[in-house]
Amino acid sequence: MDTGVELSNLFNEMDTSSWIEIASVVALALILIVVSQKALSWTANRLHDRPRFLVFAVIPLTRLLILVAAAVWIVPIVIEPSLQNMVALLGAVGIAIGFALKDYVSSLVAGLVSAFELPYRPGDWVEIDGVYGEVKHVGTRTMELVTPDDTWVSIPHLKIWNKAVHNANNGGPSLQCVAHFYLQPDHDATAVSQALSDVALTSPFLEIDKPIVVIAQERPFGTHYRVKAYPVDPRQQFRFVSDITLRGKSALQRLGAMATSAPMSVSQTSS
């Protein structure tokens, strides 16, 4: 009985004006969040290079600031924000969360952490738990990415607690691409290496001030060449790799270097 009285004492008397004020703050916060997210996304998508990623990085922070401001406004309306009251309220809420909403709240907290640690931002190309794609939206509970096959995947933020986040461009415009070539061992390796380097150097997608690297490695089935280079825009990565692959095959044919196909077990281990 005493506990019930004490708990009810936490809360302020709520009249109609209080409810209207809370509803107004929530509505205003929602409108601001929607408008700011759309405006910033629209702006970022019309920018290029580093400014694009800077604007993308601001999106989750903006939402977080709006949410915090709304909470700071609403909490004193609902309760008297004394230390005693806060401890009692958080204790009650904590018990509820611990039993029923653990993962949900864990994702919310991870969302807060991700807004500061920035393991991924909109525009980044990331792989989480075997899913690779471009981050399109970083929400409060989840982040959404689009795979190269145009599939939207929603991933809860709590993955950052115990899964590796592979970020290919980490908030910048530089994203290394790799094109693979598998050749029979009997060929002029110097000529092949030069030809593959020229294939990358002459690609219209190439970010020319980044290095082009050709790596050759002997495998049981032949020689494995990897051409590593950077496209101007990370969104071009698949077209860039396709361009290098197609024109690389033509260049290799001219040199008489024959492609080889590896047995499945070998190719899987080599990749």
């Binding site: 020229d198 002459t202 260049a251």
Partner: peptide, 12 residues
């Protein structure tokens, strides 16, 4: 000099 090359794998 721009007539002595093409931005092509076989053009440099």
């Amino acid at each position: 000099l721009e007539r002595w090359f093409l931005r092509h794998a076989n053009g440099l």
